[in-house]
Computed example of a mutant assay.
Amino acid sequence: MNKKRIGVIGIIILVLLGSIVGGSLYMIDYSLRPVNRGKDMEGSMQYMKQTYPHITPWIDSLQHHHALRDTFITAPDGIRLHAFYAYASRPTRHTAVIVHGYTDNAIRMFHIGYLYNHSLDYNILLPDLRYTGLSEGDAIQMGWLDRKDVMQWIDTAPSLFGDSLKAVVHGISMGAATTMMVSGEPLPDYISCFVEDCGYTSVWDQFKKELKSQFGLPAFPLLYTASILCDWQNGWNFHEASALRQVEKCQKPMLFIHGDKDDYVPTWMVYKVYKAKPEPKDLWIVPQTAHAESYLNEPEEYTHRVRSFVEKYID
C-alpha cells in the first residue's frame, strides 16, 4: 500500500471520527439543551389554565392569598435551585413532593399540585429541576443528577412543613424517571411511598428509541460516543442513568401509571420497571391514553387511584 493511499485512508478515518464526535455533540445539545418552554413562566401558567380549567380557581385563590410561595436552596456544586410550595388548608403532616417532566417546570405540574393540595388537602412542594423554571443550570439532567437535587428538597421539606411529616414523591415523564431514581437511594423514614407516571426505564433506552424514531439511526456509534461525552460534560452517562436498576433496590411502595397508547415513553417500559420493583407495588394502565395524559383524560379516576394508594401508606 503506497503512502498516498495510506494518507487517503487516514483522512477518511479522521473525517468519520470528526463526524461521529460532531454528531454526538449535536445530540447532547439537542437533547439536554433544547429550546426550553420550562423557562417561560407566564406561558406555562397560561397553558395550565387553558388545559386544566378546573384548577384555575385553586391557582387564583393561592395567588390571591399569597399562599403559593417561593423557596430556594443551593446544591453542593453551587447551582441555585427553586421550588414552589403551599400548605394544606389545615395543619397536617401529609406532604407531596411533585417532580415535573422534560422541558417542563413546576408550574406545569400544578394539576398534580391541585390533586394533592385541593383534593387530598396535602402540603405540596414542587421543585424546578435544573435548566428549567427559576432554577439555574446549563443542561437538562434527565433525572440522574436531578435525583440528588430532589433528595436535597426532601431533606429541606421538614423545615417547611414540620418534623413529623409523611410524604409521597410523585413524578410524571422525566419526573417519573427521577422519582424512580430517587427511590433506590437511602431516604428518610418520612418518605412513605412513590407514584411514577409514564417514566422511562433508562436514559439509554429512551435516547435509543428517540434516535431511531426521530432520525432513523441505530444506537451505534452516536449513542455510545454521546454517552461518553455526556460523562465528560455532566458527570454521568446514559447507561448509569437507570430507573430500572434503581427500582430494583426500592423497598417502599410504588404506584406505576402509564397510558396504553404512549409512543413517546413506550408502554412496554412500565412493565419492565414494574416487574423489577419488589413488593409492595401497584399498576394502572390507562386505556386510550397517550404520553403524560392520564390525569388529563381521567382526572376523577386518577385522583381516586392516587388517593387509594397513598392512604394505605400515609396515615
Rank of each mutant, 00 (worst) to 15 (best):
I9G: 07
I11R: 03
I12Q: 04
I12G: 06
L17D: 06
G18E: 01
I20Y: 00
Y26H: 02
Y30H: 07
L32I: 10
V35L: 06
K39D: 09
D40S: 02
M41I: 15
G43D: 03
S44W: 00
Q46W: 09
Y47T: 12
P53K: 02
S61D: 11
L68I: 05
D70I: 04
T71F: 02
T71I: 10
F72E: 05
I73K: 02
R80W: 03
Y87V: 12
A88R: 00
R90Q: 14
P91L: 09
T92Y: 01
T95R: 02
T95C: 10
V97Y: 08
H100L: 05
Y102F: 10
D104I: 09
I107L: 07
I107E: 06
I112W: 11
G113C: 04
S119Q: 11
P127Q: 04
R130K: 06
S135H: 01
L145A: 15
K148R: 15
M151E: 13
T156Q: 12
A157Q: 03
A157W: 01
P158L: 09
D163R: 12
V168A: 09
G171K: 00
G175M: 08
A177M: 07
G184M: 09
P186Q: 14
L187R: 12
D189W: 08
V195T: 10
T201N: 08
S202N: 06
W204S: 11
K209E: 15
Q214P: 01
Q214L: 13
F215I: 10
G216V: 04
P218F: 04
A226P: 00
A226Y: 02
I228S: 13
D231A: 15
Q233T: 15
N234D: 15
N234T: 14
W236P: 08
H239R: 14
E240H: 12
S242E: 09
S242F: 12
A243N: 11
A243H: 08
V247G: 13
K249E: 15
F256L: 10
I257A: 05
H258S: 07
D260S: 03
Y264V: 13
W268V: 15
Q288P: 03
T289E: 00
S294H: 00
H304N: 13
F309G: 09
K312G: 13
Y313D: 12
